[in-house]
Simulated scan of single mutants.
Amino acid sequence: MTIDTSTDRAPDLSGEEPTLSEIPPQADNLDALESEAIHIFREVAGEFDRPVILFSGGKDSTVLVHLALKAFRPAPVPFPLLHVDTGHNFSEVLEFRDELVSRHDLRLVVAKVQDWIDDGRLSERPDGTRNPLQTQPLLGAIEDNRFDAVFGGGRRDEERARAKERIFSLRNAFGQWDPRRQRPELWNLYNGKHRAGEHMRVFPLSNWTELDVWRYIQREKIELSHLYYAHRREVYARDGMWLTSGPWGGPSEDEPVEEKVVRYRTIGDGSCTGAVESEAYTVDDVIAEVAASRLTERGATRADDRMSEAAMEDRKREGYF
């Protein structure tokens, strides 16, 4: 005899085994990851005064917004989005950002690298990339708006420095990260205590993989910028990547332009974010492609992470994402 011990229905005393359709489905991996992320959002909302979501227009930050909407529905998301605009963003990403903000009636704060260059606080780099220049405008926006918790879409599978970081990552009064000040996180208990001037970076997607993110996008039918899917684009080869021309400059005379079918695995500053040749036109296609890949999206397509073996960790110590 089989006795059903669930609280939703009376025990089955008929002596018959339950059919597959009668067995309550168990929470799968995506359910567990979603539940953890929503718990983190609610924990921060209850523990901090002025949280903000870093939003780049990429897939991870778009998933963060989706999770925040779920965490507080039917109430509005109780904190704004913060976008650090390098001035070298893809126009399609800016259009997607503005449409998403309008659709969900969200608040948006924009910190512009160009403003810091114009008034002399920053100088253009010789290589033309502005990704490393985002740190100071980011820290300035955090200080000016008195944000005490900053959500980011970083995941541990992306890069070695991010693999070291806790879900609640303390930054000092200068916005800097010190790996030696990492706090233990046992049993999903998070320590948000911080001194005046300090703030916490919070990473609800820490335990997700790129494949988890795409499977969640598929399940939740999350709309992304079309750059993530295969499309025709004029590109040129540099450092093993396909780059596209834009206000950031390029190509040089010895870099011929070709038309390729490509997509972007990650979206950042156009001067250092490469595309990959791909026939992945749909979410299902992307999932199959990512499942077969042996390189993370940053390792495959971000030139700024190739500057040195410790490029990301060095920038995180300075206050980078």
Results as ranks from 00 to 15, higher is better:
Ala71Glu: 00
Ala71Trp: 00
Ala71Tyr: 02
Ala71Arg: 05
Phe72Ser: 10
Phe72Met: 11
Arg73Gly: 02
Arg73Thr: 01
Arg73Gln: 06
Arg73Asn: 06
Pro74Cys: 03
Pro74Lys: 06
Pro74Arg: 07
Pro74Val: 07
Pro74Phe: 08
Ala75Asn: 14
Ala75Pro: 02
Ala75His: 13
Pro76Leu: 14
Pro76Met: 13
Pro76Ile: 13
Pro76Ser: 15
Val77Ile: 15
Val77Arg: 00
Val77Glu: 00
Pro78Asp: 11
Phe79Gly: 03
Phe79Pro: 02
Phe79Val: 05
Phe79Met: 02
Phe79Glu: 04
Pro80Met: 14
Pro80His: 13
Pro80Cys: 12
Leu81Pro: 04
Leu82Thr: 06
Leu82Cys: 11
His83Trp: 02
His83Cys: 09
His83Ile: 02
His83Val: 03
Val84Asn: 02
Val84Lys: 01
Val84Ile: 15
Val84Pro: 01
Val84Gln: 01
Val84His: 00
Asp85Leu: 13
Asp85Met: 12
Asp85Pro: 15
Asp85Phe: 11
Thr86Leu: 10
Gly87Tyr: 06
Gly87Glu: 09
Gly87Met: 11
His88Ser: 07
His88Arg: 01
Asn89Cys: 10
Asn89Trp: 03
Asn89Ala: 14
Phe90Asp: 02
Phe90Ile: 02
Phe90Gln: 04
Phe90Gly: 00
Phe90Trp: 07
Ser91Glu: 13
Ser91Arg: 10
Ser91Gln: 11
Glu92Cys: 05
Val93Phe: 07
Leu94Ile: 05
Leu94Val: 09
Leu94Gln: 04
Glu95Trp: 07
Glu95Met: 06
Phe96Ser: 10
Arg97Tyr: 00
Arg97Asp: 03
Arg97Pro: 00
Arg97Ser: 05
Asp98Pro: 03
Glu99Ile: 03
Glu99Val: 06
Glu99Asp: 13
Leu100Gly: 00
Leu100Arg: 04
Leu100Ile: 12
Leu100Tyr: 03
Leu100Cys: 04
Val101Asp: 11
Val101Tyr: 12
Val101Trp: 11
Arg103Val: 02
Arg103Phe: 01
Arg103Ile: 01
Arg103Pro: 00
His104Lys: 01
His104Asp: 08
Asp105Cys: 13
Asp105Asn: 15
Asp105Pro: 09
Asp105Glu: 15
Asp105Phe: 12
Asp105Gly: 13
Leu106Gln: 05
Leu106Glu: 07
Leu106Ala: 05
Arg107Val: 03
Leu108Ile: 04
Leu108Gly: 03
Leu108Lys: 03
Val109Asn: 09
Val109Tyr: 11
Val109Cys: 01
Val110Lys: 07
Val110Trp: 07
Val110Asn: 07
Val110Ser: 09
Val110Gln: 05
